[in-house]
Simulated scan of single mutants.
Amino acid sequence: MLETRNWFAKQPASEGELAEIRHALPTTLPLAYFDLLAETNGGEGPLPVNPYNFCLDPVVTVLDAFRSRNYDRPDLDGFLVFGGDGSRELIAFDMRSGLPGAIVTIDMVVGPESAEIVASNFDQFVSMLGHSSEDYRRL
Rank of each mutant, 00 (worst) to 15 (best):
P51S: 04
G43H: 08
P30Y: 04
F122T: 05
C55M: 14
R73E: 12
L18W: 02
D107A: 03
P48R: 07
Y71A: 13
V62C: 09
L18E: 03
F82M: 01
A13G: 09
M108F: 12
L76Y: 14
T40G: 07
L90D: 07
T27L: 15
D75E: 15
F79P: 00
L25M: 09
L63Y: 02
P51M: 04
F54Q: 05
M95S: 02
N70G: 02
F79Q: 00
S97M: 01
A32R: 14
D75W: 14
A92W: 11
L99W: 04
N41M: 04
N53F: 14
E44Q: 14
V126F: 04
F125K: 04
S68W: 06
P48L: 06
L47G: 02
P112S: 11
V49T: 12
T40V: 01
N53P: 05
R88Q: 11
D94G: 08
S120W: 00
A65Y: 11
M95F: 05
K10V: 11
P112Y: 07
L31M: 13
F54P: 02
L25P: 12
A32H: 09
I117D: 08
L56Y: 06
T27K: 15
Q124W: 05
P46V: 11
V110R: 15
G111A: 08
Y52K: 08
D85E: 09
V110Q: 12
V118N: 05
R69C: 13
A32D: 14
F66K: 01
D77T: 11
P58H: 07
L63G: 08
E20C: 14
N53D: 13
N70F: 07
G42I: 01
V126R: 07
S14E: 07
P46E: 09
D85F: 09
R73H: 12
E15H: 12
P51F: 07
V126H: 06
V62K: 06
F66S: 11
D75N: 11
V109W: 14
F82K: 05
V109G: 08
L31P: 13
D107H: 08
C55I: 15
E39M: 11
G86A: 10
D77V: 10
N41G: 14
D75H: 12
F125A: 03
Q11F: 06
T28I: 13
R69Y: 12
P100W: 00
Q124C: 01
L29W: 10
P46N: 10
S114T: 04
T40L: 01
A24F: 09
P46K: 06
A38S: 15
L80A: 03
P26I: 09
P74G: 06
T61S: 15
G78D: 02
P48I: 04
T105C: 11
L36F: 03
L37Q: 03
I91P: 00
D75Q: 13
S120H: 10
G86P: 05
A115L: 06
R96D: 01
R22V: 08
K10I: 00
V118W: 04
I117Q: 13
T105Y: 00
S14L: 03
V62P: 04
M108K: 03
V81E: 00
R88G: 12
E20Q: 14
F34Q: 03
K10Y: 10
R69N: 14
F54I: 03
S114R: 02
